[in-house]
Design a protein around this nucleic acid. Sequence first.
DNA 1: CTGAAAGCGCTAACAC
DNA 2: GTGTTAGCGCTTTCAG
Lengths: 342, 342
Amino acid sequence: MATIRDVAERAGVSVSTVSHVINGTRRVSRETQERVQAAMTALHYQPNRLARSLRSRRTQTLGVLLPNSANPFFAQVLLGIEAAGYDHGYNVILGNANDDPRRELAYLDILLSKQVDGVVLVSTGAYGAALDFLMAHDAPVVMVDRSPGEAYDSFQIDTVFVENTRGGVLATEYLLRLGHRAIGCISGPSLLTSSAERVIGYRQALIEAGVGVDETLIVAGDFQHESGYRACRELLARPSPPTALFVCNDLMAVGALCAAHEAGLRVPEDISIVGFDDIPLASFSVPRLTTVAQPARQLGARAVALLVSRLKDRQLPARHERLPVHLVERDSCQRYKGRELL
Amino acid sequence: MATIRDVAERAGVSVSTVSHVINGTRRVSRETQERVQAAMTALHYQPNRLARSLRSRRTQTLGVLLPNSANPFFAQVLLGIEAAGYDHGYNVILGNANDDPRRELAYLDILLSKQVDGVVLVSTGAYGAALDFLMAHDAPVVMVDRSPGEAYDSFQIDTVFVENTRGGVLATEYLLRLGHRAIGCISGPSLLTSSAERVIGYRQALIEAGVGVDETLIVAGDFQHESGYRACRELLARPSPPTALFVCNDLMAVGALCAAHEAGLRVPEDISIVGFDDIPLASFSVPRLTTVAQPARQLGARAVALLVSRLKDRQLPARHERLPVHLVERDSCQRYKGRELL
DNA sequence: CTGAAAGCGCTAACAC
DNA sequence: GTGTTAGCGCTTTCAG
């Protein structure tokens, strides 16, 4: 590959001039400019961004650490991050913690030693070691979707979450409005704020409606298909099963759909189900899933926007964004008409 | 951050010694070794991999270029790449061409100038510009899942595809064995080899069974949900609609499921559907989808393995792998019992 | 077994 | 407007 030196020689100018032409950091005479341009194209010059980064201390690269890639929701977020990164002139190094906090930490170490300019962290949710590490290294971070526990919420770092509590309220109120009273809840991992907050919304709505919370109707999943399936079976096996379900993410909701189907129940005739996320699949499940939509790609886009602005000014105060959610009514819910089949 | 120089000073040895201790490239006395180790931990030394890469001309970073992120199948492949990369000591810079060949090219340019050691390319399928570019730059590449047209198959580059044709045969023979004769096909984009080959398998099976190919029963989709939905509606609107469908990927198959459902048809009682991919969703659709499974994560893993081996020895001859597929029987197909409802 | 010296390719002070 | 110089932090000869 041709180096900047080759270009300079060929154009008959100094290396620094070439550099300035490339970066537009200096006024250059028209003629020089053209000579340099010509030399660059003639030699197919491609700057070595490694060298550039070493010198300028900026890599134009962001690290993204995801908890796992099993959830299409994260894929969406990643998509948003990548796209926004591209628009801002940043590349993205992907890390997948594989739900293992140790691997999460190991990855962060590598990302930082590769000198990423900043990190988008979707925490595994297990302890705050990752965050502590990043803080210790004074790395620009933005936390997305969840924090590893409320203790970390007050950290002086940027966060982009969604209105989880409001989403839980929205879903539950909707089911209440349809006349349901025995409303079950399939939660996610309890230490994830994203799940915990949704359940809080669920409780809140129930209490405000004067229905009260039946703790035995809340069963914990882990945000994966399978657990939604199992949790739903468990709920349906109860002596008096719920007539509606608020499931804390779509993946589990689809699992629940499947379990209901297998149990010989029709959705929504026999049981209503509302999910959370609005992943692409939600509009193509059978029946199509009513769900609380959160703007996954925008989550990634906002995260990058915050991160990039912080890179410009490290002194900015910590910002905490909550992106709005809304209920998408599809075909998985129906007015309660009294218990017939159960 | 502490530099290697700081460590050397503190340990009272030369910089080169520290370097050799870190990389294990030299025999070092026990004592020196320990002193260096101690200094490193005391200073929380973290090597600057940028500098290392600049000097050693290896970044331990691979570029991955995906055509888009809308398809969970690619997310799976990416997962496999990331995991295998991690195991081999490589990081992954993600690029998303967004189905735009120009962006694909722009991305490759950036990836190369960031000095990635190699590129995993899942082509957008539009022309071979990306490949040409990579060849011109003499970059190690492995092409995954598809090539941008058969003309490029003979290129001297490593490829990891799956047995698409065999998959098409498998699916179609299965439907034939169930007694179906009017078997429709929803294909992907025609210029993608992955789609084209599957359709070839479909034709092949039909011809070998003496059934013959009804061209009007083949309709093209684009590998997205929506197009499967539309294609299925189109097929069902025919005067004599097919009793079974081979759909070239699961995303479209789920769309087809949805269309069939909306048309008042039961799957599999009224129409049988078999997909291709076996994405996670396939086991949770209603009904669960019978499909030709391809090892998505392994595709990524093999790609990385080939790429890494090539990085070790650039002279290796081009290798072409075809990973096996197999039929996963679930609940979306049934023996043909004569046309009742249609 | 260890050290000195020379860069990787680029940018950014500092001169003129 | 342009050139000279000094590194970024590391690895890798080349000497000993």
